[in-house]
Design a protein around this nucleic acid. Structure first.
Lengths: 189, 189
DNA sequence: TCTCAAAACTAACAATTGTTAGTTTAAGAT
DNA sequence: ATCTTAAACTAACAATTGTTAGTTTTGAGA
């Protein structure tokens, strides 16, 4: 693990503040105080407040895109693919909880990069939907409403960042297993 | 249906703006422009920006609290109770989509009312958890991780406000039925 | 027509915002 | 020791913020 640059440190601290108060409510002076420096000094490392948000959100969006591409290229069945998607979300949510909060809550403030983010997000959802449709066609999944299913699973996975920090000792594998069980098999006896 | 007061109109328009940009990014001038008046004129109807958010969020929080109390007093089994919870979320999400967005995204800006909101929320989750535990004890539900189950169902229900506006012709009953099927029975064949 | 209250207005305020310019400090390389 | 450069600083800016004070407009009931 190589040492964190000053810029990376700023992005990390900013993500944490964004998570707690939201992008708009965090001032450059808040961020500077948290870094132990003056607001003007931040500009030796970043170009603007906007750019901080963009760096945080787009890095994660690209992680999801890359992860999804690996999954769809895999030639396993749809259940296996869904399990891989769950793993992907759990992994990113544990590694970058604060950044995910910014992605989920503050993407509307991305301005110039907003359209690009929404495009990546749309593509991700399309791939996810394809997997569900494929599974129903192949008879591996029940024939339920695809849109409601997509929404339901994705809502849970996208909310992981809210829930993970409350559990002190998260076991990545155990969480993914429980989620797979509940999301795929339900809870009814 | 009695006529909307000017204050109610402000709350309704404010909720819509909060949904799109978040509480902090909406200025009193934004809200006034949308109402067709000047910012100062808003203060003939509301006492502060804070108070607008509090009115919006706490009204909904109390709707949930009242709905949950009706459900737990009911003497049906846990599956029926879970279905009633789903109905409650669908109903409120359709009736007050914009307000729910403010509740879910901007509760941290409630200031003096924040603790009260969090208390209502905690109680709601506790009742929800009790129902799940009861269902497992009675053998009506599979013995799965209660916390993950609670989180999973609640994440989906809390995200309804994001998804409902995208579906032009939402049938409340059909949506609730699909959700019950997917959340309770899963999708695996 | 007159009254009166609700609800709009103009003008201004003090504080806070993101950001820039120019300067000083600190520390490793020569 | 000197040089160099990254990274901090002080001071300031123009714009925007929520809000108040005081005034005018509006419209329904007397």
């Amino acid at each position: 693990m190589q040492k964190e640059t000053r810029k990376e440190e700023i992005l990390r601290v900013a993500a944490r503040l964004f998570k707690n108060k939201g992008y708009s409510a965090v001032t450059m002076r808040d961020l500077a105080t948290e870094m132990g420096i003056k607001a003007a000094s931040l500009y030796n490392h970043i170009s603007s407040k906007q750019a901080i948000l963009q760096d945080i959100v787009l890095a994660i969006a690209e992680d999801f895109t890359a992860g999804m591409h690996k999954i769809i290229e895999d030639d396993s069945n749809s259940i296996k693919k869904l399990e891989q998607i769950i793993d992907l979300h759990v992994k990113i949510a544990i590694e970058n909880t604060d950044g995910l909060a910014a992605l989920n809550s503050d993407w509307m403030h991305l301005e110039e990069k907003r359209a690009h983010y929404l495009e990546l997000r749309q593509q991700y959802e399309d791939h996810f939907r394809d997997i569900l449709n494929q599974g129903m066609k192949e008879g591996e999944l029940q024939r339920v409403d695809v849109e409601v299913t997509l929404f339901s699973i994705l809502s849970t996975l996208r909310s992981l960042y809210l829930w993970i920090p409350k559990k002190e000792d998260i076991n990545k594998e155990a969480l993914a297993t429980s989620l797979s069980q509940i999301l795929l098999n339900g809870i009814n006896k």
